[in-house]
Nucleic acid binder design. Structure first.
Lengths: 117, 117
DNA sequence: CAGTATCCACACTGATACTG
DNA sequence: CAGTATCAGTGTGGATACTG
């Protein structure tokens, strides 16, 4: 039996949740798995995500040190985003989450239950 | 190379994020891993979580079919919460997240970087 | 191309008070 | 013991418009 006060776990959990809290963070990280990508190229992978919002999310992830921002001094400007080692380590977890999500949806279909939106 | 529009992933991701979105959801699920638990017993495991908030979170998780709520017709009342199979399947992922969180904190200490709050 | 600056609306959290 | 109801504060996301 594990008997823990939440305070002993809070730190790790909170840290993980910070990363996941952004509405698009998970998917951004996911798309960065394939290697460096430019801003607009990344933007095009999303539906319903605006320019400004993507910028905000990227800044956040940068502060968390999950992604790296490489600026090329060119005209026109070129900026590439890539994952740091820290970010890459999230891979299995993200896949795990996605798989669970699929399972969840399947389960709801089988039991003919509608899942909450 | 994976080339996906986000729309094909959105559903699975969103579903997973719904579960994680609650500030305490992850820890609630974690604490339920040890088997059924009563309301106040669960409440005592948290610092800074109020009665009302816990109720809300539990209702949410119940709607997601991640936990089961068993009411015993007694005086005084007794209500036990437990994980559904769906909830139990989240276990590895939650552990993965926690581990990553620890690693993250370690990394920040080593590099002497302060991590964002 | 890759941003920044505002602003607003909404959802979520938590405090407090009351109930069977 | 295990709730419900209400309400206020806060932060986040998204829309829009402007910049080098």
């Amino acid at each position: 039996m594990i008997e823990l006060k939440s305070s002993e776990l809070t730190c790790s959990f909170n840290t993980a949740q910070k990363v996941l809290s952004g509405k698009w963070s998970l998917m951004i990280i996911f798309h960065l798995m394939n290697g460096p990508i430019r801003f607009n190229e990344l933007l095009r992978k999303f539906d319903g995500l605006t320019h400004a919002s993507l910028t905000k999310q990227l800044r956040q992830l940068e502060n968390f040190r999950l992604i790296h921002r490489e600026v090329y001094n060119q005209v026109p400007p070129k900026v590439e985003y890539s994952l740091t080692d820290l970010g890459k380590k999230l891979y299995p977890t993200i896949i795990g989450l996605t798989d669970w999500g699929s399972e969840y949806i399947e389960h709801c279909k089988i039991t003919e239950a509608s899942w909450p939106r």
